[in-house]
Design a protein around this nucleic acid. Sequence first.
DNA 1: GGCCTCCTGTGAGACGATTCAACCCAGGAG
DNA 2: CTCCTGGGTTGAATCGTCTCACAGGAGGCC
Lengths: 343, 343
Amino acid sequence: MARSVSMKDVAQLARVSVGTVSNVLNRPSRVSSATRQRVEDAIDKLGWVRNESARQLRAGRSDAVGMIVLDISNPFFADVIRGAEAFCHEQGYLVHIGNSDQVQDRQDDLLRHFEQHRVRGVLLAPISSDLGLCDQLKRRGIPVVLVDRTTSGGFCAVGVDDVEGGRLAVGHLLEQGHRRLAFVGGPGSLAQVRDRRLGGDLALARVADAAAMLVVSTPTLDVASGLAAAGEIAALPDGERPTGVFACNDLVAIGLLQGFVAAGLAIPGDVAIIGYDDIDFAAASAVPLSSVRQPRFELGATAARLLFDEIAAADEQAAHSHSMIRLAPELVGRQSTAAGRAG
Amino acid sequence: MARSVSMKDVAQLARVSVGTVSNVLNRPSRVSSATRQRVEDAIDKLGWVRNESARQLRAGRSDAVGMIVLDISNPFFADVIRGAEAFCHEQGYLVHIGNSDQVQDRQDDLLRHFEQHRVRGVLLAPISSDLGLCDQLKRRGIPVVLVDRTTSGGFCAVGVDDVEGGRLAVGHLLEQGHRRLAFVGGPGSLAQVRDRRLGGDLALARVADAAAMLVVSTPTLDVASGLAAAGEIAALPDGERPTGVFACNDLVAIGLLQGFVAAGLAIPGDVAIIGYDDIDFAAASAVPLSSVRQPRFELGATAARLLFDEIAAADEQAAHSHSMIRLAPELVGRQSTAAGRAG
DNA sequence: GGCCTCCTGTGAGACGATTCAACCCAGGAG
DNA sequence: CTCCTGGGTTGAATCGTCTCACAGGAGGCC
């Protein structure tokens, strides 16, 4: 198409200088209303739209932050994104969303991309503790806030106390009388998986007559993994099969639920299930799923807030000390662990 | 932090001109290997990262496309995004994801933002037929492809035949012997809602002894809306209550399922339910949900392909005629409509 | 009337990467 | 020895916007 119209074209049509056009846009009070009107008319007439690249180049910064999640298909992250976006939008910032799919290379690619685009900051749900590229961003003056993570090494972080969450989940199963338990989740490289399991183990250690948790490791945290694990567990003979299963997240729990039902096991009669995240589908499942609720929206919003605090401190050359915010998980008991039928 | 390093710094350190640095990056064959090595060393040493704004300004174009979906929490769109992203990534493009949440103003904001950022094209799941801003983008040379939409007015479009899908869904209920049916969904401004319902009506018209569908309109297409509608339907007296319900999407269907169970109705014994989209949670639901499958991933990937065709045509100044691709929906029968018990 | 302000508006640089015409020099052909 | 060729490198111009020092004119004040 025709070369895109620039401020110069607008200036020409309005018979003013480009400087004046810029003033109309950025400090309208400095321009007389007659001139302003002429310029605005010219803008409308030509359909001029500001070129953000040029603006950013000149300003040396952008109006965007980047965000990387582990799995865009997981409704948990959808809500975290919503939270972050709500906050950023309020500040006039755009959020670039990236999906690492738990692949380190993909995460690194995205970080590089963000760096090239000179985002003001990054919200990262990290795959592993390998944060090499984050250090590079930090050195360049791009703050990084870790999301859904409670151990921070030189970064701000927001997370839910996963150890406590695991403790709640397993504690709940124990309270319902279950003594043979299983933990389903993976990979172990994810801090979430390790912490939740650890919490479970801690709860278990307080009860004398409970066996160690059977651990079924999965490659990812999705429905398919839960389904596969269900088959494995259902195949165990009656006396050995766990009566209570702690799934590392709700997707896995839903897979388990489906798998157990398909194998002819009753929920919670034969097996009780508790998930993690309390996504909407957990409650909506026909055997409503007990779960450990995380404040998803707040997680995203808080992370965004920390990020903007750090950005503001850098702008003002003020000191900034990294903070780590640990939100509290909450047990949500539903039918999938209802008492009265378990052995 | 220190002013970000530019190519000039690299050039200085490597004792060459900036032109040579640029050549190393963009046409390495033109540079002697000794020089190239020196430049690359300098880049590493300084940690230089290309400034994408400057590159884009000079090039007059970006390496990104924009995508706007109706509801980022709906797993249906998560998969559409995956499809689009897979294709774009292969072409070396980045996808900016935006969430309109079915709010026209939000959609327009996002379109304006994309225009300012000079994206190469836009994939849009439109809220209504009001595409005013899209025309503006088109005039500016930014092609727009409509996603999940089969009526195109001057745009390429990819969609699933929703009328056919509605026909399949209701046809299936009729085949199972149901004669009192309901349709749950809304708002009517969404083409998806209108078309699916129309398809249902068409199927119904072929059967002499079936009553007209009871239409329960909802404000949005989410779980909460389904729950509310379930209450409304469950309250009807036994002889009047529909025995088969067609939900406009799976989120609504899941809400219905939960609501009916809570009201003491058996699925599919008292009420059969069929949803739409066949998201993973439909199959994983403890009463596995019948649904109409849409090729979600393919939908996104195809839309991206059309977009790049149009971009390529524009680059080569070749003619481009808009195409409209209609993918076929597919009935997936599961337990929620299983036969043998319905009246 | 002269001088000082305030109000508008101007125009010349940046910002950082890319491109391209021009240049330099070594080596080969004549 | 001169001319030509071509690989390797340079430097300036360019993209569109923003900022800032400054100019011109109107009005106020002494």
